[in-house]
Write a protein that binds this DNA or RNA. Sequence first.
DNA 1: TTTCCCATGTAATCAGTTACATGATTAA
DNA 2: TTAATCATGTAACTGATTACATGGGAAA
Lengths: 178, 178
Amino acid sequence: MSRRPQTEIAILGALSIGPMTGYELRAAITDVLGDFWHESFGQIYPTLATLEESGSVRRATPGRTSGSRFEITSAGRAVLRERLAEPHTAPPPRNALLLRLFFGSELPPGRAAELLRAEIDRATTALGRFAAIRAEVVAEPESEARTFRSLTLSYGEHHARAHLTWAREALAALPQDV
Amino acid sequence: MSRRPQTEIAILGALSIGPMTGYELRAAITDVLGDFWHESFGQIYPTLATLEESGSVRRATPGRTSGSRFEITSAGRAVLRERLAEPHTAPPPRNALLLRLFFGSELPPGRAAELLRAEIDRATTALGRFAAIRAEVVAEPESEARTFRSLTLSYGEHHARAHLTWAREALAALPQDV
DNA sequence: TTTCCCATGTAATCAGTTACATGATTAA
DNA sequence: TTAATCATGTAACTGATTACATGGGAAA
């Protein structure tokens, strides 16, 4: 199998939009993909080095070591397309919130309600953020890229709404003394 | 911080229902928590050993090494309650499906639709499974444990429905030539 | 008697985070 | 000139999976 790290996909994907330094890469990933993807510097820099070695990316301003932007090569674009097409296997589920709620009867009094209220806050905040992004996306000119951006945003919207509804219902269903 | 592995919580939680061998533990976790939690043997056995050493669990039939069930001790119950009450930090998001869809314009033709159809299947299957569990839960006598079981099940139902709706909408929104 | 399931465990490996160390550039 | 931000990188660690090795017991 030898599943290569998905960090490569995220980096190549981000560089397919435009050249960036490692630092900018991390900021871009956090900004744009932050709701469903994450990279740390500890992953970005080593991965960038191996991608450079394999010829998938190159320095836009060679010579300089600090502050030089990386750009994707045509070989890199091919790798990106390949890697994107690979089947993805969902990692085994590990939902810390549900694990706690499942054994909720062992939780101190009030803690379950507290957990649910935190989820309501989180989902509400997320929905506000999504609404702002939605306004931006709607204003963009029609393009294939926009379709896919809209589609991932829609995922966030649907799931956040479901999460909010669930948490409210669950909170209401909780016995008073728990 | 020193966040201890959550495997301990899952194991102690499962043993709080009744004594089990490592093998049964894994089966129980897969059966009952399978939709939102997972443990592998490579985690279960070493964790069971450290839990035994720290006095959180003990062998129900001492002497025998193979096939002896582990039971939770009162110290173990205290540890479980403590660990459940700890704040949980959600791991950074890494949604492989969305990463692929976001860069969907780099996907080979038809692949995006294929991914979405697979999600529709997955969500549909999950909803069927949840319906069967729901029927069981409804039949159970009222108890605090049932409330929490119902609450985690409801999470699955809400999210699976949202997922299905999203995937169908997204599939319909996809341009024909993509 | 062979096959399947129950059962336990370890070693290698992996993807990823965190903490740390360091330095360049820019704005106040 | 000092503080903030931009920028790069490494080492240690961690939580976890996977593959492998082994063997008992039951049933076909």
